[in-house]
Amino acid sequence: MNGADLLCETLLANGIDTCFANPGTSEMHFVAALDRQPRMRCILGLFEGVVTGAADGYARMADKPAATLLHLGPGLANGLANLHNARRAHTPMVNIVGDHATGHLQYDAPLTSDIDSLARPMSNWVGRADSADSVADRTREAIEAARSGAGGIATLILHADAAWTQTASAVPPHNVAPALPAPDT
């Protein structure tokens, strides 16, 4: 199992079974993992604003977190307006944002950006999975943050090499999700 498969399994084990996606090349291993997992519903969007808006609406209607898959910092930036709305509404959402392989960052490719700084204003939690062995723990942290009720937006930055590398980490056990707090009347 690679890091991308582990990410998918961790989302599913925690009740997240829908991912709205606008992927690019850095996210292809996670796209392949989504495709291999019939319990995960992947909905492609042609623009990141559509993806983040649809995830916000879905999570509000389903009363459970939605996941998004966005391409690098520019893809995240394209969806920030809807993430602002989702954060203000305390919508539970886990954003998975691809990043270049850790060894490639030194070359400052054209789409390299400071994803952490872009994510922070619209996220209650920002973290990085920089190795396949860290994917499950970081994903669980993101899900816990999304369910916290403190704003609900968690952004997990997934390096390409963390997605494609094999891991011996165990598939997490199924975790029953606590009920989301009811809105203030």
Rank of each mutant, 00 (worst) to 15 (best):
H29V: 08
H29G: 09
F30T: 09
F30D: 03
V31A: 02
L34T: 07
Q37C: 12
Q37G: 00
P38M: 00
M40Q: 06
I43F: 07
I43C: 12
I43W: 03
I43H: 02
G45P: 13
L46V: 14
F47N: 14
G49W: 03
G49Q: 13
G49I: 11
V50Y: 13
V51G: 08
V51N: 07
G53R: 06
G53W: 10
A55S: 12
Y58K: 06
R60M: 07
M61W: 02
M61R: 01
P65M: 12
T68M: 08
L70C: 06
G73Q: 05
P74V: 14
L76N: 02
L76R: 01
N78G: 12
G79A: 10
G79W: 07
A81N: 14
N82Y: 06
H90Q: 14
H90T: 15
N95D: 14
N95M: 04
G98N: 06
D99S: 06
D99F: 02
H100A: 04
T102R: 12
T102S: 14
D108K: 11
A109V: 10
A109G: 02
P110H: 08
P110Q: 09
L111A: 07
T112Y: 04
D114E: 05
D116V: 12
R120I: 12
R120W: 14
P121F: 06
P121M: 05
W125R: 11
W125V: 07
G127D: 15
G127N: 11
R128Q: 14
R128A: 13
A129M: 11
